[in-house]
Design a protein around this nucleic acid. Structure first.
Lengths: 197, 197
DNA sequence: CCTACCGATCGGTAGG
DNA sequence: CCTACCGATCGGTAGG
């Protein structure tokens, strides 16, 4: 009776993080309880503390690992060519691909920034600014090299970034567009925005 | 001693809503307590219930009044001309103006949607979809009338909307751009996106 | 408009 | 991995 052999008995840390991600995205960090997360992996809330030191830790892990992913993808995209227009196009494609593939991480990343502890938030905010600077630098160089024509580097950069971030809100795998299709189309839109089309 | 004549004694409902708006934007709805709001208007938390029926009510009031504002501005913009390109341009300008002028309302409006009670959330979500449909219809008509050339009506519409929403995140009165400047520039960007420039 | 307070929730710890 | 539980917080009410 007691060992009825329900579902998974063994809880891995990765399962906990995955469950937390989904709950944070759905209900928000503050509204998600350790019991909620436990329930999603078939244990009681307190049992989670064998694998995790705090709820905050889960948020930090989610944010840091996804930030590492975008930064790496961005570096690869920009490093793959010397042509500014191609660099910007590929950077936008990578940006969009990330926001489509890792919707929830992206969503939580921007939505829950304020619920990181002070130290963690400062560090994450700095990395986010670095990421944004990467795009601004590309737009600036494109203008300097006479490849782009923009009204304002700053506004154009914000637009490129915000368009891509928006993808994480509506994108669903297996619907009208594939990840690649969305990436390519946003790459085209980016070229129009900078006047390089 | 007791009547040292501190600051405001009379608390108006509008002051409470304004204080709630700022706190919701800064800390988030769940993280804001009635005591926080009370402190901002120089009363104790429980005293607020003389003017307000619940914390939820404050959120509803903020969201409904700002939604009414955008919808009205949008209608005026679209109704001011018959030319699709001008209509879209003015709709985008109105959209951006709203997100610049009412940054906090816009911010709270998208960020705290999930903390509305079920009925309220459904109603607000429906009005938001109506608003978005207004833009999609304009893009569609522009394409049908051969004024716009877009890869995907849906993605282009999302881009236009998301760019404008992004303004509420970074815009600050009295910095590099005025509200009107930002609106005009985003109007130009919109024309580029739909291939009408 | 205030103090006192209820009832419920929640992160995390104790101690198996 | 669980139950019991601590300590703190919070929305809202009572009753002036």
């Amino acid at each position: 009776m007691s060992t009825a052999g329900l579902a998974r008995t063994r809880v891995r840390r990765a399962d906990i993080v995955a469950a937390a991600l989904e709950l944070f995205a759905d209900k928000g960090y503050l509204a998600t309880t350790m019991d909620d997360i436990g329930r999603a992996v078939n244990v009681r809330g307190p049992s989670l503390y064998k694998h995790v030191t705090s709820k905050q830790d889960l948020l930090v892990e989610i944010m840091e690992s996804s930030m590492a992913t975008v930064l790496r993808d961005h570096a690869v995209a920009v490093g793959s060519t010397d042509d500014v227009a191609d660099q910007l196009r590929r950077a936008v494609e990578a940006h969009v691909r990330f926001h489509a593939r890792h919707r929830l991480e992206a969503f939580v990343g921007t939505r829950e920034l304020r619920h990181l502890s002070d130290g963690n938030r400062a560090a994450m905010a700095a990395r986010r600014r670095d990421y944004e600077r990467g795009f601004r630098v590309l737009v600036e160089r494109g203008v300097a090299e006479d490849r782009f024509r923009v009204g304002s580097v700053r506004l154009t950069t914000y637009s490129l970034l915000d368009m891509g971030v928006g993808v994480s809100v509506w994108f669903r795998e297996g619907e009208e567009f594939s990840v690649d299709e969305v990436a390519y189309r946003y790459g085209d839109l980016a070229m129009r925005l900078v006047g390089a089309a």
